[in-house]
Amino acid sequence: MNRNVSRIFAAFFGVLAITLPLFAGDYPLQVARNIMLYMALAITWDMLLRSGQISFGIAGLFGLGAYAAILGVIRAGMPAWLSILFAAVFSGVAAFLIGLLILRLRAMYFSIVTLALGEIFRIIVHNLHDFTGGPEGVVIQQGVIFGGNANKLYWLALVGLAVALAASTWFEKSKIHFALTAIRDNEISAKSSGIDIFRWLLLAFVVTSAIQGFLGGIFVQSYGFATPDTVFSADFTLLPLAMALLGGVYSTTGPVFGALLLGLVSEWLKLKIPYGHLVVYGIIIIIVILFMPQGLKQLVRRDAGKTEGRNA
């Protein structure tokens, strides 16, 4: 697609996103918030994927941030806005420490370890009853941030998305892009051309995890509670992954389109087919991936027809 056309598109969507509260009701705003949250998670997942590392730990870091934020408010008396930043820092630092240990792992082993770490976070939160509230969870006594004002909550979610978009664009436009792509394409030649693989992976892991924690903080402040089942839900891993893959990976636009598609479809189907909409949802995922193996990006980028699969 022509570069100018895509700029116009981006500008159009940007203006639409910012001005939505001026003309949309509370229901579209709520749906938009849900979609933007998953969209941002999908973008962060894709950012790490650009190095070839497949994380299954989104829910773990999201949940960690969510609990950091809510416990920051309840146990340390943080103001709401600070707790969201604290969530980002907490998940980021956790990711840094974990990353030192696990970023030497590759392929499936990395995926499994991130998955297992997410489960470990969940069990710890689950079992430290007195501090975290245990399986029943905790609520923020003073309620939802901004007194539940729909417009402000929308803008808060938009900030979360904007941070993810900005980071992703930074990854795409800077040196990081070449480093991560080189690692993904051929690690050995990347190493021999002087790329410090571990450092770049650590950077990508910490940045994406911090954003995931940030989004977790936004989530708890928007609903005023956290329970282990809610914030560590496997949905926060699987849906962003599905969105990124359906939209098309290794880019910012792919996850954006994928999240729009799945987010809108799921809300629409729910209203049209109250009983059984999830069956259709599953079938749509299957069909899209079978007929658009490169994701929705394929619709706009004709040159993406080349497959990278096995040609046996």
Binding site: A242, L245, L278, V279, I286, I289, P293
Partner: peptide
């Protein structure tokens, strides 16, 4: 999906899982 990029199998089987369960 085997002929497509490798990650597609993940999402395909995820779709199958949802379709079966639901």
């Amino acid at each position: 999906a085997l002929k497509a990029p490798e990650l597609n199998q993940l999402i395909l089987t995820f779709g199958l899982a949802i379709a079966f369960t639901q």
